[in-house]
């Protein structure tokens, strides 16, 4: 078994657990195996191309895998792996450039919110922000969707705040580009 330390920002995906166990022969397979247990974890650790994000470090015992064999660094029974993202401690970066941002968020609908037309209301309340559902799975009692929000970054932030206020659980997925 490999012990994996989950950092605070990713704990919503592991049900709050700070340490999880998995079977894996290397870092790559560990990420896949964790993603099987905790869907969405891989997206937070890796970018669209499957590479480990540049602001996330993975340590095998005390060593940074970037200076070992990267994703192919071998794991053995009893190893401890830590996932450590950069943290700054506070406010979002203020950008002075007026630009269109495309931000993707994973929205999870609790059972009591599943019937509410949340996105429709958000569109009406924040007309400067476009929403585009990229993936979704909505069932009788549970539902999630990956939604791309496009517009001014500040407006997107306000729209996301509006989604959260309606009781939806929102996790950022990835930021694409600034056009």
């Amino acid at each position: 078994m490999i012990k994996v330390r989950i950092p605070t920002p990713l704990r919503p995906l592991t049900g709050g657990k700070g340490e999880v166990e998995t079977q894996a022969s290397d870092i790559q397979s560990m990420i896949e195996s964790l993603n099987g247990q905790f869907p969405g974890l891989k997206d937070r650790i890796c970018d669209g191309g499957g590479e480990i994000r540049r602001f996330v470090n993975i340590y095998l015992n005390e060593e940074d895998i970037r200076f070992m064999n990267g994703k192919t660094t071998a794991l053995k029974d009893g190893d401890e792996v830590s996932i450590v993202p950069a943290i700054a401690g506070g406010s979002p970066v203020k950008s002075h450039k007026a630009s269109v941002a495309h931000l993707r968020f994973h929205l999870r609908f609790p059972e009591d919110k599943i019937k509410e037309p949340v996105l429709c209301k958000i569109n009406r309340e924040f007309p400067s922000v476009d929403t585009n559902i990229r993936r979704a799975d909505v069932r009788e009692k549970t539902g999630w969707m990956d939604v791309e929000f496009s517009g001014d970054a500040g407006d997107i932030e306000k729209a996301i705040e509006g989604v959260r206020k309606r009781g939806i659980i929102v996790d950022p997925i990835e930021l694409n580009v600034v056009e």
């Binding site: 920002p9 540049r54 950069a86 401690g89 506070g90 406010s91 979002p92 941002a101 970054a153 950022p172």
Partner: peptide, 15 residues
């Protein structure tokens, strides 16, 4: 330590 900062929007702020 961290080659690049996370893009804005990816990390929730303290608020």
């Amino acid at each position: 330590l961290y080659a690049e900062p996370p893009p804005a929007g990816l990390v929730p702020n303290c608020q």
